[in-house]
Design a protein around this nucleic acid. Structure first.
Lengths: 145, 145
DNA sequence: TATTGTTATACTCTATAACTATA
DNA sequence: TATAGTTATAGAGTATAACAATA
């Protein structure tokens, strides 16, 4: 296009480009740990101090309850999580990390946290600006401002 | 954490949060159009003027050749693409959009392009700053600067 | 009656290995 | 020999419907 728009829409398109170009690295990391993408999402979203119920976890990772049954079955077979009765509802079951699962979660988070190479090319000031803009957007959205 | 870091890493974590919170909308859009996530990626990455070969398309959307065979089979059965012989290599086949596929691609791109609600809360100036920072990062990475 | 989770079923995605046709 | 694409096979993700236990 002749004139660059520079709107929220065009900025989002750039975010997409960066996300897409980083996909190979992320998938490779998961594969090295022997996890599928959904297993990685489930594992990294588990709160060690507050094990969610199946339905709560399903809501977090946008996963059907019948799908989640299979996913958690496999994570349990791998020894990363275990199902426990829920305290307040005898129908529900909580998904709790095992020690092995906690260790893998830490490893996963550590390896996933580095930004893609594009963002490494920003100066410290520029990175702080980027952080502030995003934090501002999120905060305004949260407060409905 | 007590002190906010404001680095490229923390900025990337915020991008993740926004991406995650927008997932439901994106998946819903695809479902409304009767497409799976991979089908959506394939369709939206096809260049109408320059149909890629199977292997080129597979590289773009990070998809194994045998997986892609099935994906393209289904897109072809739905009438969105058609396989054509490649001009220079009698082994290869190009994946070309049909008229129906071009229309769906336009619809898909139009519906996917709006930014998530968080970014709508930025002013025009802030959005332009965000665009510039991301464009700078991408440009420096591309030129190895 | 409604909700939580599982099972049954069917389809899609995914990768590995073997294969055909072409380079 | 190497590469492009398909097929066969097996496992994992996905959703719908039916179901049992509990709220």
């Amino acid at each position: 296009m002749a004139t660059e728009p520079k709107t929220a829409t065009s900025a989002w398109a750039l975010v997409w480009d960066i996300f897409q170009s980083d996909k190979k690295r992320r998938w490779g990391l998961l594969a090295e740990l022997g996890l599928t993408p959904v297993q990685g999402m489930a594992l990294s979203s588990l709160d060690a101090d507050d094990p969610p119920t199946m339905s709560h976890l399903g809501g977090q990772i946008m996963c059907d309850s019948s799908t989640l049954t299979g996913v958690v079955d496999r994570l349990e077979a791998l020894g990363y999580v275990e199902r426990r009765p829920a305290p307040n509802d005898r129908r529900a079951r909580c998904v709790a990390l095992t020690d092995k699962g906690r260790a893998l979660q830490a490893e996963l988070r550590a390896r996933m946290s580095p930004p893609p190479p594009q963002l490494e090319h920003l100066t410290a000031d520029e990175a702080a600006q980027l952080h502030d803009l995003l934090a501002t957007a999120i905060a305004r959205h949260a407060t409905g401002a």
